[in-house]
Lab assay of single mutants.
Amino acid sequence: TEKQERAIEYIRRLGYSEEEARRILKKANGNPDLAKEIARRIG
């Protein structure tokens, strides 16, 4: 989804690889607090 793409872009800007960014997002899917934090940061 567009939100996922924005989140991946944001995480990659922090210096993670695409693969790492996707792994972090997968974790965020099972972790509402982390997901909220990422969403808050990407606006």
Rank of each mutant, 00 (worst) to 15 (best):
K27D: 13
R40I: 13
G30P: 01
R22M: 09
E19A: 12
A7G: 03
E2D: 14
K36P: 02
Y16L: 06
R23S: 13
Y10R: 06
E20M: 08
E2W: 01
E37I: 13
D33E: 14
E2A: 12
E18D: 11
G43M: 15
R23V: 11
K3M: 14
E19L: 10
N31K: 07
A39W: 01
E18G: 05
N29F: 10
G30A: 04
E20H: 06
R6K: 14
L25M: 12
Y16G: 00
R41Q: 13
I38F: 04
R41M: 11
E18N: 06
Y10T: 10
T1F: 14
I24K: 00
I38G: 02
K36I: 15
Q4P: 05
R12Q: 14
E37P: 01
E19W: 10
E37V: 13
E9G: 05
G15H: 02
K36Y: 11
S17H: 03
G30F: 11
R40Q: 11
S17I: 02
K36E: 08
E20S: 07
Q4M: 13
I8M: 07
E19D: 12
Y10Q: 12
I8W: 05
N31L: 06
L14I: 05
I42W: 09
I24S: 00
Y16I: 06
E9T: 05
L14T: 01
E9S: 06
L34R: 09
Y10N: 08
A21L: 03
E5V: 09
D33G: 09
A39G: 04
E2N: 11
L14Q: 04
A39L: 04
Q4V: 14
A28C: 09
I8T: 02
R13D: 15
E37Y: 07
N29I: 05
A21W: 00
A35F: 03
E19T: 10
I11A: 01
Q4F: 10
G43Q: 15
I38V: 06
T1Q: 12
K26R: 13
T1R: 13
E20N: 05
G15P: 00
L34A: 08
N31S: 07
R6H: 12
E5D: 11
E37K: 14
E18H: 07
I11Q: 00
A21E: 00
A21P: 00
K36H: 04
N31A: 05
E19S: 11
A7L: 12
I42N: 12
A35Q: 02
E19R: 08
A28M: 04
A39P: 01
R22V: 08
E20Q: 10
I42D: 11
I24T: 01
R23T: 12
R41L: 10
E20P: 00
L25Q: 01
E9M: 06
Y10V: 12
G43D: 12
I24H: 01
I42G: 14
I38Q: 04
T1Y: 14
L34M: 09
K27I: 15
E5R: 14
R12I: 15
G43N: 15
R13M: 15
R41P: 04
A21Y: 01
R6W: 09
I38M: 09
G30V: 02
G15D: 01
I24M: 07
Y16A: 02
K27T: 13
G30N: 09
A39V: 05
G30M: 10
I38E: 05
I38T: 04
R6C: 13
R40G: 08
N29T: 04
N29V: 05
R6T: 10
K3V: 13
G30H: 06
R23P: 00
I42Y: 09
E19Q: 11
A7K: 02
N29K: 12
K26G: 09
K36M: 15
D33N: 09
G43K: 15
R13E: 15
Y16T: 01
E20F: 08
I24A: 02
G15Q: 01
E2Q: 11
S17E: 03
R23Y: 12
I42M: 15
S17D: 05
R13P: 00
K27G: 08
R13H: 14
E9Y: 04
D33S: 10
K27A: 14
S17Y: 02
R12S: 06
A39N: 02
K26L: 12
I24N: 00
R6E: 15
E37M: 08
P32R: 03
Y10E: 15
K3P: 11
E37Q: 13
E18L: 10
A28S: 06
K3S: 14
D33M: 08
G43R: 15
K3A: 15
R23Q: 14
E19V: 10
R12V: 15
R40D: 10
S17T: 14
N31G: 02
E20R: 04
K26N: 12
D33A: 11
E2Y: 02
L14M: 11
R13K: 15
G15V: 00
N29P: 01
R41H: 12
R12K: 15
G15A: 01
L25R: 00
K36W: 07
R12G: 05
R12P: 01
R40E: 14
I42K: 12
R41T: 12
A28G: 03
A35S: 03
L25A: 02
E20T: 08
L34I: 11
R22Q: 09
E37L: 09
I11G: 00
A35D: 01
K27R: 13
I11F: 06
P32A: 13
I38A: 04
K3C: 08
I42P: 08
E37N: 09
R23K: 13
R13S: 15
E9N: 07
L34V: 11
E9F: 04
K36N: 04
R22Y: 12
E5H: 10
A28I: 04
Q4E: 13
G43A: 15
E5P: 03
R23C: 07
A7D: 06
E2S: 13
Y10P: 03
E20Y: 06
L25V: 06
K27L: 15
E37R: 14
K3W: 08
E18C: 08
K3H: 13
L14A: 02
A28D: 00
T1H: 13
N29R: 11
Y10I: 13
R22E: 06
Q4H: 09
L25E: 01
